[in-house]
Design a protein around this nucleic acid. Structure first.
Length: 257
DNA sequence: ATGGCCAGCATCGCTGGA
């Protein structure tokens, strides 16, 4: 089972690129973030024509997440929202095959010390509680999404420059480690990876051609999914060309259980 | 080649993203 996470930065704008990418890559499940669409505007028709059934939890302008499931698979027990943070649409989950898939768009945080930063840390803590409850019911959990946290120095193009800044402050990294401590492993780090592999590059300052990026989009695995994971890759090519998202898609492949 | 912000909302500049 191929599972992809991709912050598309507006599904309205990115739908043609998403459809083109799906046609080539054919993942089984896709976790989308920043759809920025109310649910009644979600492009179900186009995605169904592409062979995917979508479950969306969106809002206009900001946030919005969705799960796409390739036709032939079934999404069961779809749920959305994070307790205590229902005002922002950042979480959707479903069970596919024998795996509970949790798709998250972690708050950006804007800047260290801001109100939004406090909101981000509180959200991350609530997310840990939610994951703990999920793990009680599901031995196999995939926690995927735009986490807006670079967990280690090697996930940052210039860790000295970024140290203490948003996405790479110690409290954020601690929040990420708290998720791992629940029993998750970062699928990307199960494999040898090229150095300087990132998932996000600022639109400004020639960041992408200079490869000044961050690895902030992640697929975390619980239980025996670690043994079942056969690859995790970031498709840097999807950041090229006309009207790219500023994030590249991350894909993990799981062997059948 | 991959290239000096982008998207949305509602204008005619702002907010938010990361």
């Amino acid at each position: 089972m191929k599972i992809t996470t991709w912050n598309v930065n507006s599904l309205n704008v990115r739908l043609p690129r998403l459809l083109g990418w799906l046609a080539v890559q054919r993942p089984d499940v896709v976790c989308l973030q920043e759809t920025k669409l109310d649910d009644d505007r979600f492009p179900h028709v186009e995605l169904e024509a592409a062979g995917y059934v979508a479950h969306a939890c969106g809002q206009r302008t900001y946030n919005g997440v969705a799960l796409l499931v390739r036709r032939g698979l079934e999404a069961r027990d779809v749920s959305s929202g994070l307790a205590g943070f229902e005002d922002q649409k950042r979480l959707i989950a479903a069970t596919v095959d024998d795996v509970r898939i949790v798709c998250a768009y972690v708050p950006n945080g804007q800047s260290v010390g801001s109100d939004k930063y406090a909101y981000k840390l509180a959200w991350c803590k609530a997310m840990a509680s939610s994951l703990a409850r999920t793990l009680e019911r599901h031995p196999r959990v995939v926690f995927a999404g735009d986490m807006n946290i670079a967990p280690e120095a090697r996930d940052v193009h210039d860790p000295v420059l970024w140290e203490g800044s948003i996405h790479f402050s110690e409290p954020e990294r601690a929040a990420f480690r708290e998720w791992l401590a629940l029993g998750f492993v970062d699928s990307f780090r199960l494999f040898d990876q090229p150095p300087d592999t990132f998932s996000w590059w600022d639109y400004r300052m020639l960041s992408f051609p200079k490869n000044r990026g961050l690895r902030i989009d992640h697929i975390l695995l619980s239980g025996d999914l670690r043994q079942r994971c056969v690859s995790c890759t970031i498709d840097r090519n999807a950041r090229k060309g006309e009207k790219p998202s500023d994030h590249a898609p991350v894909t993990a492949e799981l062997a059948l259980g």
